[in-house]
């Protein structure tokens, strides 16, 4: 699995907000057919890095390469059409549509962009089934609990048949049972060749799913490696628990 192709690579990414450097010289990679973790304490710059990768934030410096192509200056839409999809930490659901239509509209968008005769209906049913949303498909999306709403965002992203899936805290708000199902779903997707990047605070989940983990702290990449390597890294322990305790 470690030999699998690198689909996304950032190098030297810097983002400054005024005098505050949110992301500083960060280089990470995400590989196809595996789940890559991106962790770090609150305010470490994870979401900002996501925004750079997806084009919602233009970095002050650095390059983002997706599938061998420099995409640093492409619009979010263009990146999505290249096969990138994401979910949002603060849910961005289409609140006037039902759960089913939230998923279906992603297929509508793909169909309008590619002019391919995709069977949106059948694909919607398949994705709803896969993500376990069939039972609530008819509900108004504002009436479902947060944990399931996060799955709706994943289902919506899957409708675009992405090659890279960026998840921003997908397990927060999920019950233990939901998280278990969700972990299985992600593992299945990765096994099918999808590149999954996971920003998540549920560390047991991250350690279990990810083959590689990048750790950010105060905008700086402090460790990259397998779960075991990362857990052994003093810098990571310090960032999470604090220097005094270690000493």
């Amino acid at each position: 699995m470690s030999l699998s192709e690198v689909l996304l690579e950032t190098s030297g990414v810097v983002v400054r907000f005024g005098g505050n450097t949110a992301v500083s010289d960060v280089g990470i990679d995400v590989r196809a057919g595996a789940v890559t973790g991106l962790i770090g304490p609150n305010g470490a710059g994870k979401t900002t890095l996501y925004n750079c990768i997806t084009g919602m934030q233009r970095p002050n410096a650095g390059r983002i390469v997706f599938d061998g192509r420099d995409i640093t200056r492409l619009s979010p839409g263009a990146r999505a059409r290249m096969g990138m999809a994401r979910t949002f930490q603060r849910l961005e659901l289409f609140l006037s549509l039902s759960v089913r239509d939230n998923v279906r509209v992603a297929g509508d968008i793909v169909r309008a962009n590619t002019r391919r005769r995709v069977d949106v209906e059948a694909e919607t049913d398949r994705v709803l089934e896969l993500t376990g949303l069939t039972d609530i498909a008819h509900l108004d999306v504002s009436d479902i609990p947060t944990g399931r709403a996060r799955v709706v965002e994943v289902a919506r992203a899957l409708m675009t048949q992405p090659r890279l899936l960026l998840l921003d805290e997908p397990a927060s708000g999920q019950t233990e049972q939901e998280t278990e199902l969700f972990a299985q779903l992600l593992q299945g997707l990765a096994d099918d060749g999808l590149a999954v990047c996971l920003v998540e605070h549920d560390l047991p989940l991250v350690m279990r799913l990810c083959s590689r983990i990048h750790v950010l702290d105060h905008g700086v990449l402090i460790a990259s490696g397998t779960p075991a390597e990362v857990q052994a890294s003093p810098a990571v322990v310090e960032a999470y628990i604090g220097a005094e305790v270690v000493a």
Binding site: A85, L93, F94, D108, A112
Partner: peptide
């Protein structure tokens, strides 16, 4: 229609619609 759903998506969340590849 699919067009109408795309309009609703754009109205509700332009960011999410763009991230699905919609040309706003």
């Amino acid at each position: 229609s699919g067009y109408g759903r795309r309009l609703a998506a754009m109205k509700d969340s332009p960011a999410a619609a763009a991230m699905l590849g919609q040309r706003l």
